[in-house]
Deep mutational scan, measured.
Amino acid sequence: EIEQGFLPKGWEVRHAPNGRPFFIDHNTKTTTWEDPRLKIPAHLRG
């Protein structure tokens, strides 16, 4: 299961009806299937 707590500020994870997680960026009011944490360099992750 995906943990909400480690998402960047302003992001939220939800699950589509088929169970697939998607990510909501409230900063830009966009959604994506890609986990935003995967784009953060390892040394900047919490």
Rank of each mutant, 00 (worst) to 15 (best):
H43N: 12
G10E: 04
F6E: 15
I24N: 03
R20W: 00
H26N: 05
W11N: 12
H43T: 15
T32R: 03
P8M: 03
V13W: 01
N18V: 01
A16W: 01
T32N: 00
E12A: 05
N27A: 08
T32V: 05
I40T: 14
E12W: 03
N18E: 09
R14M: 05
P36A: 03
G46A: 09
R45A: 14
G10K: 01
H15G: 05
G46D: 12
R45S: 11
N18P: 09
L44Y: 10
E12L: 00
L44C: 14
I2S: 10
L38C: 13
P8E: 04
T28A: 06
P8R: 03
T31Q: 10
K9A: 11
T32C: 05
E1K: 12
T30M: 10
D35F: 01
I24T: 03
R45T: 12
K9I: 06
L38Y: 06
I24L: 14
I2D: 14
I2G: 10
T30V: 10
H26F: 09
E3K: 12
K39P: 11
I40L: 13
V13S: 06
P17D: 12
R37P: 01
D25N: 08
K39N: 12
P17I: 14
V13R: 11
P8L: 00
R20Y: 04
K39H: 07
P36N: 02
L44H: 15
T30K: 11
K39D: 09
G5S: 12
R20D: 09
P21Q: 13
V13P: 02
R14A: 10
F23Y: 08
W33N: 06
R14Y: 06
I40P: 07
T28E: 09
W11V: 06
T32F: 04
F6H: 14
H26G: 05
V13G: 02
W33V: 09
E34K: 06
A16M: 09
E12S: 08
R37H: 08
N27D: 11
G5Y: 14
F23C: 00
E3V: 10
R45F: 10
T30F: 05
P8W: 01
F6L: 15
R20A: 14
E12T: 08
K29P: 01
P41W: 05
D25E: 07
R20C: 08
L7P: 05
K29G: 14
P36K: 01
H26T: 07
D25K: 01
H43A: 12
D25G: 01
E34P: 00
V13I: 12
A16I: 10
A42R: 08
H26C: 06
T28D: 07
T31K: 04
D25Q: 00
R37G: 04
V13H: 03
W11E: 07
L38S: 13
I2T: 09
I24C: 06
E12V: 05
R20P: 01
E3R: 07
H15Q: 08
R45G: 14
E1Y: 15
G19I: 00
P41F: 04
H26R: 05
G19L: 01
G19T: 00
R20S: 12
H43Q: 14
W33F: 11
N18C: 08
W33S: 08
P36V: 00
K39I: 08
L38W: 12
H15W: 11
P41N: 14
R14Q: 11
K29Q: 13
P41G: 06
F22Y: 14
D35L: 04
E1D: 09
P21H: 04
P21R: 11
H15V: 10
T32E: 03
V13Q: 11
A42C: 11
Q4F: 15
R37I: 02
T31W: 08
E3L: 06
L38Q: 12
Q4K: 15
Q4A: 11
N27K: 10
L7S: 04
T32L: 01
W33T: 09
I24E: 01
E34C: 08
W11L: 03
E12K: 04
P17F: 05
E34L: 10
F22N: 02
E3W: 07
P41R: 11
H15P: 05
W11K: 06
H26Q: 06
K39E: 15
D25H: 06
P17T: 08
E12Q: 08
V13T: 05
N18K: 03
L38V: 13
T28P: 02
H26E: 04
V13F: 10
H15L: 14
P17L: 10
I24W: 07
E3Q: 15
R14L: 06
I2K: 14
T32D: 00
R37T: 08
F23K: 05
A42G: 14
A42L: 11
T31D: 04
K29C: 07
N18T: 08
G10D: 02
T28S: 10
L44M: 14
E3G: 13
D35R: 04
N27T: 12
G19W: 01
F23S: 01
R37K: 02
I2H: 07
K9C: 08
N27S: 08
R37N: 02
R14D: 08
N27G: 06
E12N: 00
G5P: 08
K9F: 02
H26M: 08
H15M: 07
P17R: 10
I24K: 01
R45P: 14
P21W: 06
G5L: 09
T30E: 10
R37W: 02
T28Q: 05
K9N: 11
G19R: 06
E1I: 14
Q4S: 13
D25C: 06
R20E: 13
K9T: 09
A16P: 06
E12I: 03
P41C: 08
P41H: 15
D35W: 01
G19A: 03
T32S: 11
W11Y: 05
F23E: 04
R37Q: 03
V13A: 08
F22Q: 09
D35T: 01
T31E: 06
P21G: 03
R45W: 10
D35H: 06
L38K: 12
H26I: 12
F23R: 00
F22M: 07
E1R: 12
P17C: 08
E3P: 09
E34Y: 08
H43E: 15
A16H: 03
P36E: 08
T32G: 04
R45Y: 12
L7Y: 01
W11F: 02
E34M: 13
V13M: 15
T31G: 06
H43C: 09
P36D: 01
L38D: 14
T28K: 09
T31Y: 05
T30P: 00
P21Y: 15
I40R: 13
R20H: 13
P36F: 00
